[in-house]
Design a protein around this nucleic acid. Structure first.
Lengths: 144, 144
DNA sequence: GGCTTATTGCGACTCAGTCTCGATAGTGCT
DNA sequence: AGCACTATCGAGACTGAGTCGCAATAAGCC
């Protein structure tokens, strides 16, 4: 998780203006537990009367994604969601019960990519790995 | 790659009716080299005057995805695409130059999932891995 | 051939995300 | 503080993917 402060700093550090809407959005994102959709942020901002426009939310999310503070992910349902995260290479595991997301290190994926390069002849540029499962808390609460 | 025959059989085998539109669509899919979007199929079917409706294409694609003969994938651009493939667990590597997709075996991903389970406490249900790179042919044609 | 019902195509509809544009407000300078 | 410059904003129109409802059609079965 990343707090609002960090995001706010990142904005100005990268040469973007530090505007009210951006600060409000940073707080909103920091308040989200796990992954969230643009639509959810929009709804929440309306509920709180923050007056953020749809376009502003999408634009800021784009900027944050560019800065690596937020990552797009595609849920199995096909929805597009986001998670707040540190700007380093990693992947996420998403709890399908509560939606909480956690960062996951490399764990040998790099080796896997190399193995694939060798066996297919492709050169691998990027990859996306998303894991879905149940987090410890939800396992305890509802042992399936 | 999967040929039209296989898909056609799979339809009837699974208890679906073997209709003209479905056969036409199967051929269309088999003719696609790599990944393709629903929109591309629609456009192609119009070009060939096959008279397939938008809804029909989406519905059949859903069915095929359910049968595992086609897999949804999300391109880095955010587009939703599909690839024809064998109904077994595997992943894809997609060439970002020509769009050709190839199937990739497990290569130790299972072990990675276990490592993640151990380190996070999550229990992993599913995952999606997509690799993007350049295929041998495109590397040769345009050595970057 | 006739019956049943899954499937189709059409067109209206929804919903996420983008675009345009005039208004607003950071930021840097004086 | 006051000012100018311009990035950014909000509202709402717009777009394009995907879905839905329904009457017409055509598989599969007798």
């Amino acid at each position: 998780m990343v707090d609002a402060q960090t995001m706010v700093h990142a904005f100005s550090e990268a040469g973007y203006r530090l505007t009210g809407p951006r600060v409000a959005l940073a707080k909103l994102i920091a308040a989200q537990g796990g992954h969230f959709t643009a639509e959810a942020l929009l709804a929440e901002s309306q509920r709180r009367r923050l007056g953020l426009g749809r376009a502003t939310i999408f634009r800021s999310l784009d900027v944050l994604a560019g800065l690596g503070l937020v990552e797009r992910l595609d849920l199995p349902s096909g929805e597009h969601a986001f998670v707040a995260c540190e700007p380093a290479h990693h992947h996420h595991i998403v709890c399908s019960v509560c939606g909480r997301a956690e960062e996951v290190g490399d764990h040998g994926l790099r080796a896997l990519a190399t193995a694939v390069e060798r066996s297919t002849g492709f050169s691998v540029d990027t990859h996306r790995l998303e894991l879905y499962g149940t987090c410890p808390a939800c396992q305890k609460r509802r042992p399936s």
